[in-house]
């Protein structure tokens, strides 16, 4: 038996060691590779005060010089990304949104930020990038990523998160014949079995804010959570307000928003952030662009144009 134990331990430690180098190839690369780019980009302007010029397209150290590369998840969903009439461009899912149109809240916002930075529409390139991968540690293929990423401090440790371009809450969505459809308080919802996508703030809301008595059901994607709700496998799902609006109005007939979980329910106010590589030289410029768009009313106009929600009641504690 002693021999067996030694062999077992040996194999376990070997396997653990085998895991190591795999992680090391990706993990440490980000600071190492980000530093030289940053230094190179700052070098010419080092003597000058970092003024507006530092954010001009020619001095911005973008992934591809002269181009702003923006990432989002595929499929990209309305109302953040609207489809293209006559068919979406490759590689965007033909059923849903095409970010290259400039139509839809996040597509329009991304182009507004690009314009504010000094890029024309032709200088913007979109690439697809998975949601959870966007804010995982490591080097990025995009200059910024826009896909309803809610700010949270843990995410901000591994990637730069911009200032908010949209402020909204989590909501609970159920089928209209559900016993929870009429709930007005979180207490009533505690008996429900709720689902969410793994790694999202929606999932954290179920555990930390609603504190359901049943464990949350956790899915690979929001689409899977919706399927489970339609199948009556769970009572409802938690998603952010614009997504809930799209689900209840377009995707899932006979589904309803129970309410939003805001400050009344003790939830932290939330905002969507762009994701950039950790310590990206672009972050300050992007934040300045967002501030300018907020100051001149562009962001409010975009929200009113693309996210005109009927007032959803706030759930009480």
């Amino acid at each position: 038996m002693a021999r067996l134990r030694i062999v077992t331990l040996g194999v376990v430690s070997l396997l653990l060691v085998a895991c190591g180098p795999g992680g090391s190839t990706t993990a440490p690369s980000s600071p190492a590779s980000a530093a030289p780019t940053q230094a190179a980009s700052l070098a010419p302007v080092e003597t000058v005060e970092p003024t507006q010029d530092a954010c001009a397209p020619e001095s911005l150290a973008t992934t591809t010089a002269g181009t702003l590369t923006i990432g989002t998840d595929n499929p990209a969903f309305p109302p953040y990304f609207e489809g293209r009439e006559g068919g979406n461009s490759q590689p965007w899912d033909p059923e849903w949104g095409d970010p290259t149109t400039g139509a839809g809240f996040e597509s329009a916002t991304a182009y507004a930020i690009a314009e504010q930075l000094g890029f024309t529409g032709d200088q913007v390139v979109w690439i697809q990038n998975g949601f959870n991968r966007s804010f995982a540690p490591g080097e990025k293929d995009f200059d910024f990523f826009i896909n309803q990423v809610t700010f949270n401090p843990e995410r901000a440790e591994n990637a730069d998160l911009s200032d908010g371009y949209y402020f909204g809450n989590q909501t609970v969505v159920v089928m209209e014949d559900s016993e929870f459809a009429g709930a007005t308080t979180l207490t009533e919802l505690q008996a429900a079995e709720l689902g969410a996508q793994v790694g999202t703030t929606s999932f954290a809301t179920i555990e930390d804010v609603i504190q359901t008595t049943q464990a949350a059901a956790v899915y690979n994607s929001t689409a899977d959570a919706i399927t489970a709700m339609r199948n009556d496998q769970i009572d409802g799902i938690v998603v952010d307000l614009p997504t809930a609006d799209f689900i209840t109005n377009v995707q899932v007939p006979r589904s309803v928003i129970v309410g939003q979980i805001g400050e009344a329910a003790g939830a932290q106010p939330e905002h969507f952030s762009l994701v950039l590589e950790l310590d990206s030289p672009l972050t300050d410029c992007v934040n300045a662009a967002i501030a300018a768009l907020a100051a001149d009313g562009t962001l409010d106009a975009l929200v009113n144009e693309w996210l005109p929600f009927s007032s959803v009641p706030e759930l009480q504690p």
Partner: peptide, 15 residues
Amino acid sequence: IVSSAGWPRVQQSFF
């Protein structure tokens, strides 16, 4: 493995 440059990061990330 333990003395390689990436080890502290591996250790922090996996252990």
